[in-house]
């Protein structure tokens, strides 16, 4: 039994959610990984050092440059005969590509698994994480995306896998990548950060999000947001935490001016420690918070920054 894991990477570095997907795959048997892109030898070298990985398949071609679903899915389908499980992290890329692979293989995908029971049986959250379903697949090949927050990532170093070139595949036409407008930030990525500080509608505008900066700086935190804050244009879409945004499970999650809707909780309730700052003592966020502070955030945030500074 061998699993193939599609790796997300950028600038020669592997994304942490993919290391969590590798961790899930190691529970199934032998693990190979696929690194696809253009000029991605460095990422393949990095993948070869992941503990538990025995082979890296390197697909280095211009067609894979921007991770379009159509060519990537065609490649994975071509590699599929050698594998029992085809896997990726539940990232925008994994969600875009893997169901496409599954349909061609006549397999029902198993999305966003949080636990591996055995080779056919997995636990996955449904209804915004308000229920956990144990599901058993009867398909010959399992196509799986992995909830990164549920598996500790394998370390970056420790392995020494071989690297092998992928076979050439007929490229489907029909889609073309034009451009990307990515948020630039010096901060850690939301899904990989040890601490996340999130703001909601209570922040009132985008400028006020700057109040979070000294706190995030001090704690080495990523900054997130509720959907309301994203919809209102305070911050870009990639800040959204929740059922339909990013799922995070940091050591510390600080929710500021966020009411705690089911859809928001779905994205952060597995955090180790949750802090809520809200002026409404009835806000549902306090039902999941380990430490709640009923306060006006415009008073509390400068105080918090000062208190952390005091060290």
């Amino acid at each position: 039994m061998t699993a193939l894991v599609l790796i997300d990477h950028e600038g020669g570095l592997l994304k942490q959610p993919s290391r969590s997907a590798v961790a899930a795959a190691t529970k199934l048997g032998e693990v190979h990984v696929l690194v696809a892109g253009s000029g991605v030898q460095a990422a393949a070298d990095a993948a070869a050092r992941l503990p538990g990985v025995s082979k890296v398949i390197l697909a280095d071609a211009p067609a894979y440059a921007n991770a379009l679903a159509e060519p990537l899915a065609a490649l994975i389908v071509a590699l599929a005969p050698g594998y029992s499980h085809l896997m990726a992290a539940t990232t925008a890329n994994g969600k875009n590509v893997m169901p496409r692979v599954a349909a061609v293989l006549d397999s029902q995908p198993i999305s966003d698994i949080a636990e591996v029971i055995d080779a056919d049986t997995f636990v996955r959250p449904i209804y915004a994480g308000n229920a956990m379903a144990t599901v058993k697949s009867s398909d010959a090949k399992k196509v799986i995306t992995v909830r990164a927050a549920s598996f500790d990532p394998v370390p970056n170093e420790g392995g020494s896998a071989s690297i092998e070139a992928a076979p050439a595949v007929d490229m489907p036409a029909g889609s073309r990548w034009v451009s990307a407008e990515l948020s630039k930030s010096e901060r850690p990525e939301l899904t990989a950060a040890r601490v996340v500080v999130s703001g909601g509608r209570g922040m009132q505008n985008g400028d006020n999000f700057k109040l979070l900066d000294p706190i995030a700086d001090k704690l080495g935190a990523a900054v997130g947001a509720s959907r309301a804050a994203v919809d209102a244009g305070f911050v870009p879409n990639d800040y959204q935490v929740g059922q339909t945004g990013k799922i995070v499970a940091p050591e510390l999650y600080i929710a500021i001016g966020i009411s705690g809707a089911i859809q928001h909780l779905a994205g952060m309730k597995d955090s180790k420690v949750i802090v809520a700052i809200n002026k409404d003592e009835e806000a549902p966020i306090f039902q999941v918070a380990d430490y709640g502070l009923v306060a006006d955030l415009f008073v509390a945030l400068p105080e918090l920054a000062a208190e952390l500074e005091r060290g």
């Binding site: 198993i110 599901v135 697949s137 918070a289 380990d290």
Partner: peptide, 24 residues
Amino acid sequence: PRLVVIKVEEPPKRQAGRKVASVA
């Protein structure tokens, strides 16, 4: 269905913590 649901369970419940009086 290709995926058979074996069981559906409640996720572990989070206990509400407590309120603190100040930022300090």
